[in-house]
Design a protein around this nucleic acid. Structure first.
Lengths: 149, 149
DNA sequence: TTAGATGCAAAGACTTTGCGCACTT
DNA sequence: AAGTGCGCAAAGTCTTTGCATCTAA
C-alpha cells in the first residue's frame, strides 16, 4: 500500500490533459503500477486491480494500458517467450532476462549509452531506452551449468 | 533456389547425430531457413514449406522448429509486438526493430561486444548474441517525424 | 518391426473488438 | 446532456497438444 501519490497524480493529470476521463478503473491501474516496483504482465495487473475493484474486466485493463502508453506514462516490453510486461515509463531501465530460469533483472539505462551512440552513428537508429530487453543467462544459471558439465 | 547445401546438410547431420529422424518436412524446413537470408515467422516458414510440400501442417512446423532449437541450429527472437521469428543460429547478428514502421534490420553481433563485456562484469550476465532485439526508431521514421513537427 | 514423426482438430494463452449501458465531465 | 469508457462475450492471433496413422531406420 505504498501508493506513490505523486506518480499516480501525474498519470491522472496526463489523462485530464489529453481530455480523456478519469475513472475508477484507470485510477486503480495507475495505483497498481505505482505500487509495483518492477514490471507486471497484463494478467498480473488485472489480478491486482480486481483485488481492489472486482468489477474491472481484463479488456478494460488492456484498453487502459493502451491509453497509458499513448500518454507515454507506461511502456511495455516483451521479455522471454511469454506475455508482455508493463511498467511506468518514468523508470528508465533495461531488462536482462535469463533464458534458463526466466527471471528478469532491471539495470540502469546508462549501460546502453555506448551502444546507443554506436547505433545512432552506424545506422541512424535511435534506440528506445525503455524497451531494451536482452536475453542471455544469469550468473546463477551459468554456475549451475558449469557444475553439471 | 539458392539452397546452401552445406547448411542444409549440417542441419540434417545434427538431426542424425541426435538420433532423431530425417523427414521430408524437416528437410524442407531446413531448406527454407537456409534460402532465407533473414528471419522468418513461423507462418512465413509454413507458407514457404507448403509451396514445396503442401501436406505439411503448421503444427509440424512448430514441432520441427522446436527440435531445431534444441539442436541449436535455429534460434528465435521476439521482435516488435508480433509473432516470433526464426533464423539459422549460424548467422549471429542482432536485430534493430523500428517501432514506427515495424521494419527490422540485422546488424553484426560485434556491435554488442562492449555491452556484453559490461553486463558480464557488472552482473555476471552472459548475453545471448543470437537473441539481441533492440527497439527504437529507424533513420527514415525519425526524419519523417522531424518533418511533421 | 517399432519408436519417432505427422496430420488434423481441438484446446490454450494472450489480446482485441463490437455493442449497449453506465458514468465522467 | 453528451459522449467517453466499461463490462461482457465473442472473435482473433499465435502456439501447443492429443490421438490415430504413417514412416524412417
Amino acid at each position: 500500500m505504498t501508493e506513490q501519490r505523486n506518480d499516480v497524480d501525474e498519470i491522472l493529470s496526463a489523462i485530464r490533459a489529453a481530455a480523456r476521463r478519469v475513472t475508477v478503473a484507470k485510477r486503480t491501474v495507475a495505483e497498481v503500477l505505482c505500487d509495483a516496483n518492477g514490471h507486471l504482465s497484463a494478467d498480473e495487473i488485472t489480478t491486482a486491480v480486481q483485488q481492489r475493484q472486482p468489477e474491472v474486466s481484463p479488456s478494460t485493463i488492456y484498453r487502459i494500458l493502451e491509453e497509458f502508453e499513448e500518454l507515454k506514462v507506461v511502456v511495455h516490453s516483451h521479455l522471454g517467450q511469454s506475455a508482455a510486461v508493463y511498467h511506468l515509463s518514468g523508470a528508465v531501465h533495461g531488462h536482462l532476462t535469463c533464458e534458463e530460469c526466466e527471471r528478469t533483472v532491471q539495470i540502469p539505462a546508462s549501460h546502453f549509452d555506448a551502444l546507443s551512440k554506436d547505433l545512432q552513428k552506424s545506422y541512424g537508429f535511435l534506440l528506445d531506452r525503455h524497451h531494451v530487453a536482452i536475453s542471455g543467462w544469469c550468473a546463477l544459471c551459468q554456475a549451475a551449468q558449469l557444475k553439471r558439465s
